[in-house]
Amino acid sequence: MRRFAGFRFPSVFLGHRAYRRLPVQHEWAPRWIMAAQILLVVALIGGWQAAASWKIIDPFFWSQPSAIWHTLTLFFLKGDAVTDIAYTFEATIIGFVVGTIAGSLLGLSFWWSRNYAAIVQPFIICFESIPKLALAPLIILIFGIGMTSKVAIAVALTVVVSTLTTYAGVKAVDPDSERLFYSLGASRFQVFRKLVIPAVMPWTISVLRVNIGLALTGAIVGEFISSQHGLGREILYAGQTYDIALVWVAVLVLAAFSMIMYVAVSQLEKLLRKGVAH
């Protein structure tokens, strides 16, 4: 005992100083966050412009903000901006609507027969595992280079997601609720309309935002492969002619367009959720 009498734990292991405080993050006011974001964008564009002017990066391949701005105004004032946007928009929306509705109906249909669901399901999974874009050239051959083929690719991308998600919703319908309905003397159709559809709606709605992105991807890829209009075709054409500023312009327009659609679908989702909840 005595031998250790002189030993003492370092003070940090004793007393209150050893305890940590709960880490606290101070959140900035929204306007400071916004200011930081604007600063970041300005720095990025300024840096790009400077780097291109001083030949740190090759302006031929990278283009530069001033040239992009110039091309952007040309694209909207003299170019095909409106035609291209309208074309891509139309293909995306039709593909989105058709794919989502068809997929949801297919998913719901599985509720009616377990045998039918068991027979069809492997094929759906199989179709899901194929990279659908690999089928795009085939789809163009079948449906031609017009709008139909773009829509078809968008549908191919969206329909499976909707089907599988809706079917997952169908499988998640509480069997006890189903028994309750039958105990009240319900017909199968009544169970379907009053229980299955409302219960599955949130699942169906949850894929809308994913699907709008997929539909846009489908439309753009269709335009890449063969098309006479659309933002995808614009990007491909500009790339092939080394008009890098135009590539950037088309990509920017596409990004803005995609964000607008995303926000619109988010609003739609909110609206539908309210409709289901009430």
Binding site: D176, S177, Y182, S183, L184, G185, L195, P198
Partner: peptide, 27 residues
């Protein structure tokens, strides 16, 4: 035969998307 007796299962099984009134009139 179903619908011949009233049956309350172990859970209340109220439908979350229906109001109380709409739940009660389900039968």
């Amino acid at each position: 035969t179903i619908g011949r007796v009233g049956y309350m299962l172990q859970k209340d099984l109220l439908l979350p998307w229906r109001t109380v009134l709409d739940n009660v009139v389900l039968g």
